[in-house]
Amino acid sequence: MPPEPQLLQARHIDAGYGTMQVLWGVDLDVRPGETVLLLGANGAGKTTFLKSLVGLVPVRQGRIDLAGTEVTHMRSSDRMRLGVTYMSELGVFPDLSIEENIRVGAQALGHPDPGARVDELYGLFPVLREKRRAAASSLSGGQRKMLGIAKALAAEPKLLVMDEPSAGLSPLFVKEVIRILGDLSQHGISLLIAEQNISFLEIATRVFVLEGGRIRFSGTVAEMSDNDALRRAYFGLK
């Protein structure tokens, strides 16, 4: 059988800031339609790795391929045109309205009908329709996170890369975000989620654990669950 195609393939990635190296030889891949969870504590290097994937942090060594095209030194805007969208912890423009935020996401890639795309996303997030003229800064933390997801989806990406979607949210809203992302994965969108909240394991296809800038584990959720030493060392589970 031919090997399973990769939507994203990162190999031997070294990256950092100035004289400080943060990542050492990181390997990670995402297949079409799957949800990959990158787990790690604060300071593990998750954000640096995500930014290297989307062109916001230069890669010192290694190679990144997206949909069969090498993008290691490609501009962020060109990577977006290949179908990758990045959602940071903030994820929105606070001073713009809800609708303006979503339109910015759609227009970033020249969507042929931004208005229609906005309406589609209001169907997924009806609470945003009710407040569409309000500034993003007026939303609750959970609602702002939903807007960030909607804005990222506006460009209809093949791969949505997310940094700590649970950050600042109550446990109730974390469950809602997990539900929304689980629904998205059923519609063929590939997800790469960097998190320290292990609740996101319930929607993951595969898991990578990053610690000290190096991948310490990669495998399925079941394989991670069977690794007692990993569970105790990184997540305090018994």
Rank of each mutant, 00 (worst) to 15 (best):
N197A: 00
H187M: 03
G182W: 11
L192G: 06
A194R: 01
R179F: 04
L181Y: 04
R206S: 14
L201N: 07
R206V: 10
Q143W: 01
K151L: 13
P165M: 08
T205L: 00
E176L: 07
L159D: 05
S190D: 09
G141I: 03
I149T: 12
R206Q: 14
G148W: 01
M146F: 00
L147K: 07
M146E: 02
V161P: 13
L139W: 05
L184S: 12
L192W: 09
E202D: 13
L181A: 04
F200V: 12
A194S: 12
S199H: 12
R179W: 04
A152I: 08
L201M: 15
G148F: 00
L159Q: 09
G168R: 06
P157V: 07
P165N: 06
G168A: 03
A194K: 00
L169S: 03
A152Y: 06
E176G: 04
K175F: 00
I193G: 08
L160R: 11
L147F: 04
E195M: 05
E195T: 05
A167G: 08
P171A: 12
I180S: 07
L159P: 12
G148I: 02
L169Y: 01
T205S: 15
I149V: 15
E176R: 13
E202T: 14
I198K: 06
M162K: 07
L169T: 06
N197D: 15
A204N: 11
S190L: 07
G148L: 03
E164N: 11
A155V: 08
G142T: 10
E202M: 02
E156Y: 02
V161T: 13
E195V: 04
L160K: 10
L153M: 15
F173R: 02
E195Y: 09
P171H: 10
I198T: 14
G168K: 11
A155G: 15
S170Y: 11
S185D: 08
E176F: 01
K145S: 01
F200P: 08
E164S: 13
L192A: 13
V177S: 11
I149K: 06
P165W: 05
H187I: 01
I180D: 05
K151E: 05
L153Y: 09
F200M: 13
A152F: 05
K158D: 10
H187Q: 14
L160Y: 10
L160N: 11
G188F: 13
V177W: 05
Q143L: 10
L139N: 10
V174L: 06
I203H: 13
L172I: 13
G182P: 12
I178K: 02
L172E: 11
A150Y: 08
L201Y: 10
T205M: 00
T205Y: 06
K175E: 15
K175C: 05
E176I: 01
L181S: 04
A150R: 05
I193R: 05
L184G: 07
L153D: 03
A155K: 11
S170E: 12
I193M: 09
L159C: 14
S140I: 00
I149C: 11
K175P: 01
S185P: 08
L159T: 11
E202R: 14
G168W: 01
L192V: 14
L147G: 07
S166I: 03
A167K: 09
E156N: 14
S190F: 09
L159K: 09
A154Y: 02
D163C: 06
E164H: 12
L139E: 02
S170K: 08
R144F: 02
